[in-house]
Structures are given as C-alpha cells and as structure tokens.
C-alpha cells in the first residue's frame, strides 16, 4: 500500500490542477487603477508646486539682492570699490631685452585703491541712477542731476533728462545759480525756475 494519497483526495493536486482557473474579480481592476492614478496625479501636482516654489524663491532672492545692491549703491562713498589701475608699459622698453633676474616682473603692476561711487561709474545706466535718486533722501538733487546728465549725454533722451533735472530742482537743496558744470538744458531750466520764482515774488 502506498502512503501517497490519490489525486482526487490530495488537496495539493486539486489546487495545482485548478491553478490556471484562478482569476481576480473584475471590479478590483478598475478600482485599483483609479486609486493608483490618483497617486500619479498627486505626484504631478507636487512636482508643479515644487517648480512654482523654486521659481518664487529665485524671484525673491533676486529682489533681495537688487534691494541690497541699491542700498549699497546709495551709500556708495562709505564702501569704496578697489579699482585696479595699471600703467601702460612701453612697447619696447630697454627692460624688455633683459633676461633672468634683471628683467622686471610683468605682473608687478601698480594696484591702487581708488574710491569709485556708483554715480561716478560710467557703466551704470541712467535708469539705475534715477531709481537710486528716487529712493535717496539726502542726495536726491545730486543723483537726479547725475541721471539727467547721463540721459542727455549717453542716450540723447532730452525728455528723460528734463524730467530728472526738474525733479533735481524740486529738491530743497537744489541750487538755482549757474555753475561751470551746467549744460545748456539745465541752465535753461534753472533760468525758467528763477523766472518763476521772481514772478511769484512780484505777484506777492
């Protein structure tokens, strides 16, 4: 007599023979798909939110940097910029033919610390100086005048120059007397302003 059970009695045989017929219920398929798709959707939203936050952070960082830069620029003379000044070397100096220790080192250039404020820097655009003037309290007239000079000289923008000169003359510390640095436009505006003042006095 064998110890092995007959195939019909053995639950393992019965199970293995019917394995191919085991199928999941149909409704589970759709339910799980919807559930998992929702998670994929959330992932996409999280991703988008991450981008928005990153861009916002960049914008904020830029705004803060700009504000700090403008603040530093307005209080420019207190923090002088070190400018590298190199003297031009003659093309064929007698030293050029010397060798070894006799030859002066080319990298021994003179370096001088020259305080340069933003308003004296020719590379700073007129718009920036005008914005600085708008934010300044004690140097308003000087900065507006500087911005006007730049508009007229660099861009030939008479309209913008007139706007800046007028604002400069509106400041309490504005000087209406002509100076050697005044250009034709500023002189004309000063003259007109002086005339207005005189007329007002006479009327009074």
């Amino acid at each position: 007599m064998s110890d092995l059970p007959t195939p019909h009695q053995d639950p393992i045989e019965r199970f293995l023979e019917s394995s191919g017929a085991l199928t999941p219920s149909g409704h589970a398929r759709q339910a799980i798909l919807l559930q998992t798709q929702a998670l994929v959707r959330h992932r996409r939203l999280r991703r988008k939110l991450g981008w928005v936050m990153a861009l916002s952070a960049c914008y904020l960082a830029g705004a803060v940097t700009m504000r700090l830069w403008l603040h530093t620029a307005i209080s420019g003379p207190e923090t002088p910029i070190v400018q590298r000044a190199t003297e031009p070397q003659p093309a064929l100096s007698p030293d050029a033919f010397k060798t070894g220790s006799e030859a002066p080192r080319r990298d021994q250039e003179q370096v001088a610390a020259v305080p340069v404020s933003i308003e004296n820097d020719p590379d700073v655009p007129a718009e920036v100086v005008e914005r600085m003037a708008a934010q300044s309290r004690d140097q308003r007239a000087r900065l507006y005048r500087n911005a006007g000079d730049r508009y007229l000289r660099d861009l030939g923008d008479v309209e913008a120059a007139v706007r800046c000169y007028r604002r400069s003359l509106d400041s309490p510390e504005a000087e209406l007397a002509f100076t050697a640095e005044d250009n034709w436009l500023l002189m004309a505006l000063k003259q007109a302003r002086q005339k207005e003042k005189n007329d007002a006095k006479n009327d009074a």
């Binding site: 798909l33 998992t36 798709q37 994929v40 959707r41 992932r43 996409r44 939203l45 991703r47």
Partner: peptide
C-alpha cells in the same frame, strides 16, 4: 513618464 506624473504611462 510616471515619475513626471503621466497617468497614461502608468495605465
């Protein structure tokens, strides 16, 4: 695509 949130790729 799924990591980027594409539902069709997941499907």
């Amino acid at each position: 695509a799924v990591l980027a949130g594409d539902e069709r790729a997941w499907q």
